[in-house]
Simulated scan of single mutants.
Amino acid sequence: MARPVIGIICSRHLVDGTRETQMTGRRNIDAVANAADCAPLLIPSLPDAISVGDLLEAVDGVMLTGGRANVHPRHYGEELTERHGEMDEGRDGVALPLVRACIERGVPIFGICKGIQEMNVALGGSLHPEVGELPGKHRHRMPKGCKDPKIVFELREQVRLRPGGVLATMLGTESIVTNSLHGQAVLEPGERVVLEGWAADDTVEAISVAGARSFAVGVQWHAEYEAETDPVNSVLFGRFGDAARAYRKLRRAAAA
Protein backbone atom coordinates (compact mmCIF):
# COMPACT_ATOMS: atom_id res chain seq x y z
CA MET A 1 0.00 0.00 0.00
CA ALA A 2 1.26 3.48 -0.89
CA ARG A 3 2.52 5.59 1.97
CA PRO A 4 0.64 8.70 3.07
CA VAL A 5 1.75 11.92 1.37
CA ILE A 6 3.06 14.78 3.49
CA GLY A 7 3.24 18.21 1.91
CA ILE A 8 6.41 20.05 2.98
CA ILE A 9 6.23 23.80 2.54
CA CYS A 10 9.14 25.50 0.77
CA SER A 11 10.57 29.01 1.09
CA ARG A 12 11.70 31.62 -1.41
CA HIS A 13 15.44 31.53 -2.08
CA LEU A 14 17.66 33.49 -4.44
CA VAL A 15 20.51 31.56 -6.06
CA ASP A 16 23.53 33.82 -6.64
CA GLY A 17 21.32 36.72 -5.57
CA THR A 18 19.41 36.69 -8.86
CA ARG A 19 17.64 33.39 -9.68
CA GLU A 20 14.51 32.83 -7.63
CA THR A 21 13.85 29.29 -6.46
CA GLN A 22 11.70 27.43 -3.94
CA MET A 23 13.60 25.24 -1.50
CA THR A 24 13.62 23.30 1.73
CA GLY A 25 16.39 21.55 3.63
CA ARG A 26 17.24 17.91 3.03
CA ARG A 27 16.66 17.13 6.72
CA ASN A 28 12.98 18.03 6.35
CA ILE A 29 12.57 15.57 3.50
CA ASP A 30 14.48 12.82 5.28
CA ALA A 31 12.47 13.29 8.47
CA VAL A 32 9.18 12.83 6.63
CA ALA A 33 10.44 9.91 4.54
CA ASN A 34 12.23 8.03 7.31
CA ALA A 35 11.05 9.11 10.76
CA ALA A 36 7.38 9.56 9.77
CA ASP A 37 7.53 6.84 7.07
CA CYS A 38 5.56 8.98 4.63
CA ALA A 39 6.08 10.19 1.07
CA PRO A 40 7.35 13.80 0.94
CA LEU A 41 5.84 16.25 -1.55
CA LEU A 42 7.30 19.76 -1.77
CA ILE A 43 4.84 22.66 -1.71
CA PRO A 44 5.93 25.87 -3.46
CA SER A 45 5.15 29.04 -1.53
CA LEU A 46 3.53 30.67 -4.55
CA PRO A 47 -0.09 31.69 -3.90
CA ASP A 48 -0.71 32.40 -7.59
CA ALA A 49 0.42 28.92 -8.58
CA ILE A 50 -1.43 26.70 -6.13
CA SER A 51 -4.82 26.46 -4.46
CA VAL A 52 -5.01 25.38 -0.84
CA GLY A 53 -8.13 23.38 -1.66
CA ASP A 54 -6.43 21.55 -4.52
CA LEU A 55 -3.38 20.92 -2.37
CA LEU A 56 -5.37 19.32 0.44
CA GLU A 57 -6.94 16.93 -2.05
CA ALA A 58 -3.43 15.61 -2.73
CA VAL A 59 -1.88 15.28 0.74
CA ASP A 60 -2.52 13.42 3.99
CA GLY A 61 -0.64 15.87 6.18
CA VAL A 62 1.28 19.15 6.08
CA MET A 63 4.68 20.06 7.53
CA LEU A 64 5.52 23.74 8.03
CA THR A 65 9.30 24.03 8.01
CA GLY A 66 11.72 26.53 9.46
CA GLY A 67 12.89 29.42 7.30
CA ARG A 68 15.12 32.47 7.44
CA ALA A 69 12.34 34.95 6.66
CA ASN A 70 9.86 36.01 9.34
CA VAL A 71 6.08 36.18 9.14
CA HIS A 72 5.08 39.67 7.94
CA PRO A 73 3.89 41.66 10.99
CA ARG A 74 0.84 43.01 9.14
CA HIS A 75 -0.72 39.59 9.73
CA TYR A 76 -0.81 40.34 13.46
CA GLY A 77 -1.52 44.06 13.30
CA GLU A 78 1.96 45.60 13.41
CA GLU A 79 3.91 47.84 11.05
CA LEU A 80 6.97 46.41 9.30
CA THR A 81 10.30 47.69 10.66
CA GLU A 82 13.93 46.74 10.11
CA ARG A 83 13.75 44.77 13.36
CA HIS A 84 11.31 42.34 11.75
CA GLY A 85 14.02 41.20 9.33
CA GLU A 86 13.56 39.44 6.00
CA MET A 87 10.06 38.69 4.67
CA ASP A 88 8.67 35.95 2.41
CA GLU A 89 5.15 37.13 1.59
CA GLY A 90 4.59 34.28 -0.85
CA ARG A 91 5.05 31.82 1.97
CA ASP A 92 2.72 33.84 4.21
CA GLY A 93 0.13 33.71 1.43
CA VAL A 94 0.25 29.91 1.34
CA ALA A 95 1.08 28.91 4.91
CA LEU A 96 -1.46 30.99 6.84
CA PRO A 97 -4.58 29.89 4.94
CA LEU A 98 -3.14 26.36 4.81
CA VAL A 99 -2.99 26.22 8.63
CA ARG A 100 -6.62 27.28 8.93
CA ALA A 101 -7.77 24.83 6.26
CA CYS A 102 -5.90 21.92 7.86
CA ILE A 103 -7.48 22.61 11.25
CA GLU A 104 -10.95 22.97 9.70
CA ARG A 105 -10.66 19.72 7.72
CA GLY A 106 -8.83 17.66 10.31
CA VAL A 107 -5.67 17.31 8.20
CA PRO A 108 -2.58 16.52 10.36
CA ILE A 109 -0.24 19.51 10.59
CA PHE A 110 3.20 19.82 12.17
CA GLY A 111 4.84 23.25 12.52
CA ILE A 112 8.59 23.45 13.12
CA CYS A 113 10.46 26.66 14.12
CA LYS A 114 8.91 29.21 11.73
CA GLY A 115 6.05 26.75 11.41
CA ILE A 116 4.94 27.19 15.05
CA GLN A 117 4.95 30.93 14.46
CA GLU A 118 2.80 30.56 11.33
CA MET A 119 0.34 28.37 13.21
CA ASN A 120 0.02 30.97 15.97
CA VAL A 121 -0.44 33.91 13.59
CA ALA A 122 -2.92 32.00 11.40
CA LEU A 123 -5.07 31.47 14.50
CA GLY A 124 -4.93 35.14 15.53
CA GLY A 125 -1.79 35.28 17.68
CA SER A 126 1.22 37.60 17.60
CA LEU A 127 5.01 37.30 17.52
CA HIS A 128 8.06 39.13 18.80
CA PRO A 129 10.83 39.62 16.20
CA GLU A 130 13.72 38.98 18.61
CA VAL A 131 12.66 37.31 21.81
CA GLY A 132 16.11 37.76 23.38
CA GLU A 133 15.47 41.50 23.58
CA LEU A 134 12.57 41.09 26.00
CA PRO A 135 13.22 41.58 29.75
CA GLY A 136 14.17 38.32 31.44
CA LYS A 137 14.67 36.42 28.17
CA HIS A 138 17.90 34.90 26.91
CA ARG A 139 19.29 34.59 23.39
CA HIS A 140 17.81 31.57 21.62
CA ARG A 141 20.07 31.56 18.59
CA MET A 142 23.03 29.34 17.70
CA PRO A 143 26.55 30.72 18.36
CA LYS A 144 27.29 33.57 15.95
CA GLY A 145 29.16 32.52 12.83
CA CYS A 146 29.13 28.82 13.72
CA LYS A 147 28.60 26.34 10.86
CA ASP A 148 29.36 23.06 12.63
CA PRO A 149 26.03 21.17 12.75
CA LYS A 150 26.95 19.46 16.02
CA ILE A 151 27.23 22.88 17.67
CA VAL A 152 24.45 24.58 15.70
CA PHE A 153 21.97 21.87 16.68
CA GLU A 154 23.37 21.22 20.15
CA LEU A 155 20.77 20.28 22.76
CA ARG A 156 20.98 23.46 24.82
CA GLU A 157 17.38 24.39 25.69
CA GLN A 158 15.68 22.89 28.73
CA VAL A 159 11.96 22.78 27.99
CA ARG A 160 9.24 22.07 30.53
CA LEU A 161 5.99 20.63 29.22
CA ARG A 162 2.45 21.29 30.39
CA PRO A 163 1.53 18.55 32.87
CA GLY A 164 -1.02 16.26 31.28
CA GLY A 165 -0.74 18.17 28.00
CA VAL A 166 -0.55 16.88 24.45
CA LEU A 167 3.26 16.77 24.27
CA ALA A 168 3.81 15.61 27.83
CA THR A 169 1.41 12.72 27.24
CA MET A 170 2.90 11.91 23.85
CA LEU A 171 6.48 11.93 25.16
CA GLY A 172 5.82 10.47 28.61
CA THR A 173 7.72 13.24 30.40
CA GLU A 174 7.32 16.83 31.54
CA SER A 175 10.91 17.89 30.81
CA ILE A 176 12.93 17.63 27.60
CA VAL A 177 16.11 19.16 26.12
CA THR A 178 16.09 20.57 22.58
CA ASN A 179 18.14 22.60 20.14
CA SER A 180 17.51 26.35 19.90
CA LEU A 181 17.93 28.35 16.66
CA HIS A 182 15.40 31.18 16.55
CA GLY A 183 14.96 34.89 17.08
CA GLN A 184 11.23 35.36 16.47
CA ALA A 185 8.86 33.62 18.88
CA VAL A 186 5.22 33.43 20.01
CA LEU A 187 4.17 36.49 22.02
CA GLU A 188 0.38 36.33 22.46
CA PRO A 189 -1.23 32.96 21.67
CA GLY A 190 -3.95 32.83 19.05
CA GLU A 191 -7.50 31.57 19.49
CA ARG A 192 -7.52 27.82 20.21
CA VAL A 193 -3.72 27.83 20.64
CA VAL A 194 -2.79 25.82 23.73
CA LEU A 195 0.67 26.47 25.16
CA GLU A 196 2.37 23.11 25.66
CA GLY A 197 6.01 23.91 26.44
CA TRP A 198 8.28 26.69 27.71
CA ALA A 199 12.02 27.35 27.84
CA ALA A 200 13.71 28.24 31.12
CA ASP A 201 12.99 31.94 30.41
CA ASP A 202 9.30 31.15 29.67
CA THR A 203 9.64 31.56 25.91
CA VAL A 204 6.94 29.44 24.25
CA GLU A 205 8.52 26.30 22.80
CA ALA A 206 5.51 24.14 21.88
CA ILE A 207 1.80 24.49 21.11
CA SER A 208 -1.21 22.41 20.17
CA VAL A 209 -4.63 23.40 18.83
CA ALA A 210 -7.65 22.96 21.07
CA GLY A 211 -10.33 20.77 19.55
CA ALA A 212 -8.21 19.72 16.56
CA ARG A 213 -9.49 16.48 15.01
CA SER A 214 -5.98 15.25 14.24
CA PHE A 215 -2.30 15.93 15.03
CA ALA A 216 -1.91 19.72 15.25
CA VAL A 217 1.38 20.52 16.98
CA GLY A 218 3.98 23.24 16.65
CA VAL A 219 7.46 23.25 18.18
CA GLN A 220 9.99 26.06 18.24
CA TRP A 221 13.04 23.81 17.94
CA HIS A 222 14.26 22.07 14.77
CA ALA A 223 12.64 18.68 15.23
CA GLU A 224 13.83 17.53 11.80
CA TYR A 225 17.40 17.29 13.13
CA GLU A 226 18.25 13.67 13.98
CA ALA A 227 14.54 12.90 13.63
CA GLU A 228 15.16 9.15 13.53
CA THR A 229 17.35 8.97 16.63
CA ASP A 230 16.54 11.89 18.95
CA PRO A 231 14.19 10.56 21.67
CA VAL A 232 11.88 13.58 21.38
CA ASN A 233 11.92 14.25 17.65
CA SER A 234 11.52 10.60 16.66
CA VAL A 235 8.34 10.33 18.72
CA LEU A 236 6.91 13.54 17.25
CA PHE A 237 7.52 12.46 13.68
CA GLY A 238 6.28 8.95 14.43
CA ARG A 239 2.99 10.30 15.81
CA PHE A 240 2.71 12.72 12.87
CA GLY A 241 3.13 9.81 10.47
CA ASP A 242 0.55 7.75 12.39
CA ALA A 243 -1.91 10.63 12.11
CA ALA A 244 -1.31 10.89 8.36
CA ARG A 245 -1.93 7.15 7.99
CA ALA A 246 -5.19 7.44 9.92
CA TYR A 247 -6.29 10.43 7.85
CA ARG A 248 -5.45 8.64 4.58
CA LYS A 249 -7.54 5.68 5.68
CA LEU A 250 -10.50 7.95 6.41
CA ARG A 251 -10.13 9.68 3.04
CA ARG A 252 -10.05 6.39 1.17
CA ALA A 253 -13.08 5.10 3.07
CA ALA A 254 -15.02 8.27 2.29
CA ALA A 255 -14.16 7.99 -1.41
CA ALA A 256 -15.15 4.31 -1.65
Rank of each mutant, 00 (worst) to 15 (best):
R105V: 12
R105G: 10
G106Q: 04
P108S: 05
I109P: 00
I109K: 00
I109T: 01
G111C: 03
I112Q: 00
C113P: 04
C113F: 02
K114H: 09
K114S: 10
K114L: 15
I116Q: 02
I116M: 10
Q117N: 07
E118H: 03
M119Y: 08
N120K: 06
V121T: 02
V121D: 00
V121K: 00
G125T: 00
S126A: 12
S126R: 06
S126V: 06
L127E: 03
H128S: 12
E130C: 15
V131R: 06
V131M: 12
V131Q: 06
H138M: 15
R139Y: 13
H140P: 02
R141Y: 13
R141V: 14
R141K: 13
R141P: 02
M142W: 15
P143I: 12
K144L: 14
G145I: 10
K147D: 15
K147F: 14
K150W: 13
V152T: 10
V152L: 12
V152C: 06
F153N: 03
E154W: 10
L155V: 12
L155R: 11
E157S: 12
Q158C: 15
R160K: 14
L161W: 08
R162I: 07
G164P: 08
V166L: 07
V166I: 13
V166N: 01
A168P: 10
M170A: 12
L171P: 09
L171E: 05
T173F: 09
T178A: 08
T178R: 01
N179S: 08
S180Q: 05
L181P: 06
L181D: 08
G183C: 15
G183V: 09
Q184H: 09
Q184W: 06
A185W: 01
L187M: 13
E191S: 15
E191T: 13
E191L: 13
R192Y: 10
R192N: 14
R192S: 10
V193A: 02
V194I: 12
L195H: 05
G197W: 04
G197Y: 05
G197A: 11
G197R: 03
W198R: 08
A199H: 04
A199C: 11
A199R: 01
A200Q: 12
D201P: 02
T203A: 10
V204H: 02
E205N: 07
A206I: 03
S208I: 03
S208L: 04
G211E: 03
G211W: 08
G211D: 02
G211C: 07
A212E: 02
A212L: 05
A212H: 05
F215A: 04
F215P: 00
V217P: 02
V219K: 01
W221S: 01
H222C: 08
A223E: 01
E224A: 05
E226P: 04
A227M: 06
D230L: 03
P231L: 06
P231I: 04
N233P: 11
N233E: 03
S234L: 07
S234V: 09
S234P: 07
S234G: 12
